[in-house]
Design a protein around this nucleic acid. Structure first.
Lengths: 130, 130
DNA sequence: CTGTATCCTTGAGGATACTG
DNA sequence: CAGTATCCTCAAGGATACAG
């Protein structure tokens, strides 16, 4: 964020905040990332997703899949067989997204302990007052 | 996400998903980014934040500030004057976070139109059925 | 000025029975 | 198998009056 922003207007800065939120909204759901990752190395079926993304409900799986498909992050292929067979695959756009998320992952790993410590300190500090 | 994952176990992949969510949780709130950006180029006061982060309610401003402070992303300095004066500043950790978010921003910009188009196509496709 | 307290609304998400 | 439909819960967030 380098102080160098001094010449940039307040509204321009908040516009950037908007762009960031735009990206986060596509990926901020509780299950989006898990699904995207599971679907990123080849086609994967509904039931298999249900197994790999631990804890997800059937409803949320369907909903999140629909949203990701709508945003063009997942491709859905239906085989007209009976019983039905449906495969989901991450699009190139989704793979790029994941690569962008790596920076964030590294940040989380780098500061994990610092954050835990900060929380502990904060809680300690504010428990005294009761 | 490069197919090269083939050798990586399913659980290892989902563990990565966890780390990503960890980072997103710190920044996923509706207002975190806006506040962080506003506080990232020097100390800023409560009222000034209320003005710059357009649309935020007083309650959410307070809550989000407390959370960010607790996680060690904001520093809060109180001047013992009357009326009170409080300044918030982004910590170095928060600035690093923003830099990690840049990749995400660029992704959003690069694919903005593609996503809009994908949505339009999807909606068109699914409106026909009614 | 910088909050806190209170009340309210909404939407995300969970559980699960049912269906083509 | 791959969903949809239904009902329910809870936490995020909004509005705003009040307080030190």
């Amino acid at each position: 964020m380098s102080q160098g922003n001094s010449g940039v207007s307040v509204t321009a800065r908040q516009a950037r905040a908007c762009t960031v939120r735009e990206a986060l909204d596509r990926v901020g759901g509780k299950w989006s990332i898990g699904i995207l990752i599971a679907a990123s190395h080849g086609p994967i079926r509904f039931t298999e997703l249900e197994r790999q993304v631990a804890g997800i409900s059937r409803r949320m799986l369907t909903l999140t899949l629909r949203n990701l498909e709508r945003d063009g992050l997942l491709h859905r292929h239906v085989y007209p067989t009976v019983p039905p067979k449906v495969e989901y695959t991450a699009t190139p756009m989704a793979r790029e997204l994941y690569e962008s998320l790596v920076a964030l992952t590294e940040w989380a790993e780098r500061h994990r302990t610092a954050i835990t410590a900060a929380r502990a300190a904060y809680d300690r500090e504010h428990a005294k007052v009761e």
